[in-house]
């Protein structure tokens, strides 16, 4: 049985279906990237996987004893968090809450778990620092450590490298791969970055408009029409942007 399997899964907002008939499975140890353009329903699917949004049709089953509330989740950052007074330790520990059940306070093993995850992500030295004073990359590591505290099986990452510079981005991808390979945690990531997705992921789910364009192993995705169409579009987009940036410069020169 798969960790997650979706059959003809659809999601709708106020009666309008935004995602039709998704069919895919996630096995233990997979690294699945969900790619697609803005508005393709990536975030909606994410909410569905987290059980924050009910499907309008089809089934979403979790297997192998995966409890829906034991999924580690790395959300996109909210404006509230940027000036929130909290220490790194407080944020990471809050990932242990689902394990507490009805007990109100953290136990010794929770504190140890938080510390282990901070060490794994190389942020143990920031333990007592304030979250709002950290760099964007450090903050993402803190939230990743919190997600790890919440799960031992499955991580859901929503655009984990958005707004990070290239060097920090590479470091983040390295960490995620380490989590996937060394800790054996299944990873599902929403991403804009097709290059990195095809480089690191074992599987790709490509969403277009309101439906699924491709699902399968990364190697076969690279040969698919969906990949080439998406890469082609991206290339045209970059060329267009390049032109727009160049033109005014040329006009200036002409003027002189």
């Amino acid at each position: 049985m798969s960790l997650i399997s979706c059959e003809n899964l659809s999601f709708a907002y106020e009666g309008v279906t935004v995602l039709h008939d998704l069919n895919f499975t996630v096995e233990r140890g997979n690294y699945l990237c969900i790619v697609g353009e803005n508005g393709a329903g990536k975030s909606t699917l994410m909410k569905g996987l987290l059980h924050l949004k009910k499907p309008s049709a089809g089934t979403l089953t979790t297997g192998e004893g995966l409890r829906p509330d034991r999924i580690g989740y790395l959300p996109q950052q909210t404006p509230v968090q940027r000036d929130f007074p909290a220490s790194v330790n407080e944020v990471v520990l809050s990932g242990c809450l689902p394990g507490l059940g009805l007990f109100p306070f953290y136990r010794k093993q929770d504190r140890e778990k938080a510390l282990r995850n901070m060490e794994a992500l190389e942020i143990a030295d920031l333990k007592n620092r304030s979250y709002r004073e950290l760099s964007g990359g450090q903050q993402q590591r803190v939230l990743l450590a919190r997600a790890l505290c919440a799960t031992g099986e499955l991580l859901l990452l929503d655009e984990p490298v958005a707004g990070l510079d290239p060097l920090v981005t590479a470091g983040m991808y390295g960490l995620i791969r380490k989590i996937n390979k060394e800790m054996g945690i299944t990873v599902i990531m929403v991403s804009h970055d097709l290059k990195a997705a095809t480089r690191y992921a074992s599987h790709i789910l490509h969403l277009g408009e309101d439906r699924q364009l491709f699902f399968g192993r990364t190697e076969s995705y690279k040969k698919s029409a969906a990949y080439h169409a998406f890469m082609g579009e991206a290339a045209v987009h970059i060329r267009k942007q390049g032109k727009a940036a160049k033109d005014p410069a040329q006009a200036d020169k002409g003027g002189v």
């Binding site: 829906p68 034991r70 909210t78 929130f84 507490l100």
Partner: peptide, 21 residues
Amino acid sequence: LFYNRIFAVTFDETFARATGI
């Protein structure tokens, strides 16, 4: 009694909801 949960909800409501609070 609810201090830790109140922290979680205040800091990040989506995460708290996703993890079953």
